[in-house]
């Protein structure tokens, strides 16, 4: 029971308190690049959730059961990026075969995920920090859902901003970044959310 509670707490904390985009700064590129429309940001977010969870499930055993026994821990970055790149390809092929309609909406975002730092960042920090498998999984789930949440919320705001009357120099990215700053301040307020819970 306690393991279950701490699992849930870890998911929530890496999703909200320690949000990928707003406090760890992973995946800013897609956050700014693919958030002009709600639909495309939703597609990107779902694809990222998919890939991050798969990558966590593969990279952790790869590190602990292959790289460490072989004594080549220093090859971790190369191994992870290869796993992620081939994973993205495989997921693309799989979706294309079994659900062409999903592929139509997700397909264009899949190549972009290889260069999304959130995926490599989660895999790398899981093993750098020496987390257990369960913690890694919680970190992966929480991080990816946090990314989905933030990118969708951000795109909803950006759609409104398009029609707002902003100064000419701030049109586009600058005003979006100001919005992100305000969101980051809001998320800072969530720190210490669990300090009352005894464990």
């Amino acid at each position: 029971m306690q393991i279950f509670i701490s699992f849930i707490l870890a998911i929530i904390s890496s999703m909200l308190i320690d949000n990928v985009v707003l406090s760890r700064f992973y995946g800013i590129c897609p956050f700014l690049g693919v958030s002009r429309k709600v639909n495309s940001s939703l597609g990107m977010g779902v694809a990222v959730v998919f890939v991050i969870i798969l990558a966590t499930v593969i990279c952790w055993p790869l590190y602990n059961f292959v790289l460490v026994p072989a004594g080549i821990q220093f090859m971790d970055t190369v191994a992870y990026i290869l796993v992620i790149a081939s994973l993205v390809q495989l997921v693309g092929l799989f979706i294309k075969k079994y659900s062409p309609s999903l592929y139509k909406s997700l397909g264009i975002y899949l190549p972009l995920i290889t260069t999304n730092c959130a995926v490599l960042g989660v895999a790398q920090s899981n093993t750098d920090q020496g987390l257990s498998f369960l913690s890694s999984l919680a970190n992966g789930i929480g991080t990816s859902i946090g990314f989905l949440l933030i990118i969708v919320a951000f795109s909803c705001i950006r759609v409104r901003l398009e029609s707002a009357n902003t100064p000419k120099a701030l049109k586009g990215l600058p005003i979006a970044l100001f919005t992100a700053a305000i969101m980051a301040i809001a998320f800072m307020g969530l720190q210490g959310l669990f300090s009352g819970i005894q464990l």
Binding site: P174, L177, A184
Partner: peptide
């Protein structure tokens, strides 16, 4: 020093560049 400040500094620099360009 916090994340919010990073976003704000980035936004202002981009805004100034856009202003000069305009």
């Amino acid at each position: 020093q916090n994340p919010a400040g990073a976003f704000i500094v980035f936004a202002i620099i981009l805004g100034v560049i856009a202003f000069i360009k305009n």
